[in-house]
Design a binder for these strands. Structure first.
Lengths: 188, 188
DNA sequence: TATTACATGTAACGCGTTACATGATTCG
DNA sequence: CGAATCATGTAACGCGTTACATGTAATA
C-alpha cells in the first residue's frame, strides 16, 4: 500500500502527470522508493476511481494528451490518517544475504567478486548522496520543515549505504582467508 | 526468485519438512529473510516439480504425515550457478521513509511517536543479535567456513540495525524543534 | 478449558517486474 | 539513421500477505 502513499506525498507537493511521477521516482523520493511507469499508471487509475486523486486532460501539439493529476481532499485526509498508523518493521529480504549465507555451497571466488562489486556500488551511491547533502542541505539549521523532512530521508539513505559498505568490508575481512593467499602469509 | 535459493541453502545443510523450514525461517536465515508456511509449501511444490528437491513421505502416529524434502543434484547445481550471478542492489522500499518524507502533510506528533517506537524496536533486535554474536560466534578466529558465512550474515544484520537506530536518533534531533518545547529553551 | 505445537494445504488479492504496443519530435 | 525524450497504456507472470480449512496431542 505504500506506493499509493508515496504518490500522495508527491502530489501533495505539486500536481503531476503519470510520466512526471515516473521521473520523480527516479530521484528524490525515488532514491528510496522505486516504481516503474507501468505500475504508476495502474495505481493512479485505481486511486482516481477511489477518489484520492483527480485528473484533467491537457491536449498537446504533436504529442499524446497529458493527464495532470492532483490530490483531492479525500487524498489529503487519507495521507493524514496514514501518518497516524505505526509503520511495521520490514525485514531485510536480501538475496545478497542468502548468497553469503550459502557460501559453502557456491563459488567462493565469484561471491567475493560480487562483494567487491557491491562495495564499489555503495561507494558510488554514497558519493552521489553526499554531494546532494552538501549542495542542497549545506546548512541544516536554515531549512524549513519540508526541507528538513527531505534531509532526514537523505540522511537515512546515507546511513544505510554506509552500513552496506561496512558490511562488504567486514565480509571481505572475514572470508578472504589469508592462508589461501599465494604468498601464504597466514595469521598465527 | 530468492526464496527458492534460501530454501536450497537450508536444505543443502540438512533435510527438512515444510514445517521445519517454516521454523528455520523464524530464526537464523529468517533473521534476514521471512517466509510464511503458505508460501513455503507453494514454492516447495514447484521446486519438486522442477526437480530441485525430492520428497519422501514419513507416516507418523496421531499426526499428519511428514514430507521430508532433500536437495537434489540438480538443486545443488542450480545453487552453484546462482552463486556465480551478480546480485542486484535492491532499493530500500521503506514505507517509513515515505512517511518521514511526507511529514509536512501528516500528524507530526504521531510520526515522532512512531520514530521513538522504532528506535526501541531496533534496540531490542540489536540486543538479541548481540547476544547471538557473543554466544555463538564468541571467537571468530575459531569458526569453520560454514560458521564464518553465518557470522558474516549476522554482522550484516547488526550493522543494519545500528544504522536504523542511528537514523531514528538523527530524525528526532532534526525534527524535535526546540522552540516548540513547553520550556521554550530554543537554541540560538 | 484454552492455547501452543505439530503438520499440511487452498483461495483471493495486491504488489512488482518484464515484455509488448504505439507514435511524434529532437538531437547526435 | 538511430537513439533518446515525451506520453500512455495492456498482458502475463511470479512474489507475498491474509484469510480460510482441518485435525491430534500435549501443556498450562
Amino acid at each position: 500500500m505504500a506506493l499509493e502513499h508515496a504518490i500522495l506525498v508527491s502530489l501533495a507537493e505539486r500536481t503531476a502527470s503519470g510520466y512526471d511521477l515516473t521521473r520523480r521516482f527516479d530521484k528524490s523520493i525515488g532514491y528510496f522508493w522505486r516504481a516503474s511507469h507501468q505500475q504508476i499508471y495502474k495505481v493512479l487509475g485505481r486511486m482516481e476511481a477511489d477518489g484520492l486523486v483527480s485528473s484533467k486532460a491537457v491536449p498537446q501539439q504533436g504529442r499524446p494528451d497529458k493527464k495532470i493529476y492532483a490530490i483531492t481532499e479525500d487524498g489529503r485526509a487519507t495521507l493524514l490518517a496514514w501518518s497516524r498508523e505505526p509503520t511495521s518493521m520490514e525485514p531485510l529480504r536480501s538475496a545478497f544475504a542468502v548468497k553469503v549465507r550459502g557460501l559453502p555451497y557456491g563459488d567462493r571466488d565469484a561471491v567475493l567478486a560480487d562483494v567487491r562489486r557491491r562495495r564499489e556500488q555503495h561507494l558510488a551511491t554514497l558519493a552521489f548522496y553526499r554531494e546532494d547533502e552538501a549542495h542542497t542541505f549545506g546548512d541544516p539549521a536554515a531549512l524549513d520543515s519540508a526541507q528538513t523532512a527531505q534531509y532526514a530521508v537523505l540522511r537515512g539513505g546515507i546511513l544505510l549505504e554506509e552500513a552496506g559498505l561496512a558490511w562488504c568490508e567486514e565480509i571481505l575481512a572475514l572470508l578472504s582467508d589469508p592462508s589461501a593467499r599465494p604468498d601464504g602469509s597466514a595469521t598465527p
